[in-house]
Nucleic acid binder design. Structure first.
Lengths: 221, 221
DNA sequence: TGTGACAATATTGTTCACAATCAGTTCCAT
DNA sequence: ATGGAACTGATTGTGAACAATATTGTCACA
C-alpha cells in the first residue's frame, strides 16, 4: 500500500487524477477494480471532493467507468475496442510519421538512427526491457518531431485506455524479432525524408501490432 | 436570458455539461467569454457543485479553459491549432471512409447517393443552409457506416473544439461550389467499394477545407 | 495628474455534514 | 426449504457554509 503524501501538501484534483492514471498504467490498479472514493482520498491524502472530480475527469478520458450510485471502477476495455484503438492510432501515427519525415533535421535523423541501433542491440542481447524502452522512445520521438500537438494528445489518451493490451504484447515470445524490422523500416523511411513511405511503414507496423494483440487475446483469454 | 429549468428536475453535472457544450456550438457562448459558476448555476437550475464538475469535464474535453482562482472561459482555439485539428480529422475520416467502403450494403449506398443528389440540388438552388445540412449528414453517415466507435468519438470531440471555424467556412462565398465535387467524389469512391480511393478523396476534401479555413482566417481576422 | 497602498467586492476553492441509494443479510410466512 | 420483505452497513450524491484569492474601486500623496 502506498504511503500517504505528507500532510499539508496541496493535493488537488489534477494531482489525484495523475496518480490514478499512473497507477492504472503501472498495473497497480487492474480493470474492473473498484475505486472507492474514501480509500483513494486517504491513500493520496486528498479530500473526497478532489477525488470525486478526479474520477469525473478520468471518466471523460475513458479510463474509468462510473455507475450511478455504485461508484467508479477501472474500465475494462474489450478486445474489439482495443483493436479499434489500434486502428485509430495507426491513422494518427502514420500522419505523425509523415510530418516527421517532412520536418526532419540532421540532428533528429541521427537520434532516430541511434534508437534503431539500440533496439537492434536489445534484440540481439535478448533484453526485452531495453527493447520495450526503445519502442516507447521511438514512437514518442516521432510524435514529438511531427510537431502535431493535437495528434499527440489524442494518441496519448488512446494509449492510456488500451494499456492492458500493451503489456501482454511484450510478454509474447518472439514478438521483438517480428517487430524489429518493422521499426527499422519506419526509421529508414523517415530518415529518407519520404512522408508517404514513412506513413506506410507505420501503418504496416501497427497493423502487425493489431494482429499480435488479437492472437494474444484469443489464446490467453 | 434563458429561463431556468423547472424546479425539482434533476439537473446533474452531465446535463449542465451538455447544455454548455450545446450553447458553445450554437454560438450563444463565444470564445473567451467568462463562465461564472453562480450564473450558470442559476441559468440551468443546477447547484454550483454540478456546474463546477461540468466545467472540469469540459476542460478535459478542451472546449473550456480554466485558470486557477480566475475561473473558466470558453477556450479560444488559435488558427494554428484549428489547422492541426483538420489534419487529424483528415486522417480519421479517411479511415472511416475506407471502412465504410468495405462494409457498404446496397441500402446504405442508396442513402449516400441520395445525400449526394440533395447536395447537388442545394447548390443549384443556392440554398446554403440545405447544403450545410447535407454536408453534416454526409460526414456523419460515413462515420456511422464505418462502425468505428472510437474514431467517431474522437472526431466528435475535435469538431466541438474547432466549431468557430466551421461557421466562417459556410459564410464564405462560392465555398459550396468548390466543395461539392469533392463530396461527390467521396460518395462515388465509397459506393464503388474502393477503400483506398475513398480515403484519398476524403483526405483531399479535408485538405481543401484546411486551405479554406486558413484563407478565411487570414483575410477576415 | 499620476501612482501606489489599501479597502471592498466578486468569484473561486475546499471541506463537511447529511440525504439518498444500493448490496447483502436476516427473518418470517408459506 | 424457499421466496420475499424489511433491515443494516457501506458508499455515493448533494448542497451549503466557510476560506482563499483575484479584481475593482477609492483615496491620499507626490
Amino acid at each position: 500500500m502506498a504511503t500517504a503524501t505528507r500532510a499539508g501538501a496541496a493535493v488537488t484534483a489534477t494531482v489525484v487524477a495523475d496518480r490514478i492514471r499512473q497507477a492504472i498504467f503501472a498495473g497497480e490498479l487492474v480493470p474492473n477494480q473498484r475505486l472507492v472514493e474514501a480509500d483513494l482520498a486517504e491513500m493520496y491524502g486528498a479530500s473526497r471532493g478532489h477525488v470525486r472530480t478526479a474520477l469525473s475527469e478520468l471518466t471523460v478520458e475513458g479510463v474509468v467507468e462510473r455507475i450511478q450510485n455504485r461508484g467508479a471502477r477501472v474500465r475494462s476495455v474489450p478486445l474489439e475496442e482495443a483493436l479499434e484503438i489500434v486502428e485509430v492510432r495507426s491513422a494518427l501515427e502514420a500522419l505523425c510519421a509523415a510530418r516527421a519525415a517532412q520536418r526532419l533535421g540532421e540532428e533528429e535523423a541521427q537520434l532516430l538512427q541511434r534508437i534503431g541501433r539500440d533496439m537492434e542491440a536489445a534484440v540481439e542481447a535478448g533484453d526485452q526491457s531495453a527493447y520495450a524502452q526503445g519502442n516507447t522512445e521511438l514512437h514518442a520521438t516521432l510524435i514529438r518531431l511531427s510537431g502535431q500537438a493535437t495528434a499527440a494528445a489524442t494518441i496519448d489518451r488512446l494509449r492510456a485506455q488500451a494499456v492492458r493490451f500493451q503489456y501482454r504484447l511484450f510478454a509474447q515470445p518472439g514478438r521483438s524479432q517480428q517487430s524489429l524490422p518493422e521499426h527499422l523500416a519506419i526509421i529508414e523511411a523517415v530518415c529518407a525524408r519520404e512522408p508517404e513511405a514513412a506513413a506506410s511503414a507505420m501503418r504496416e507496423h501497427l497493423m502487425s501490432v493489431g494482429s499480435a494483440i488479437e492472437a494474444s487475446a484469443r489464446t490467453s483469454g
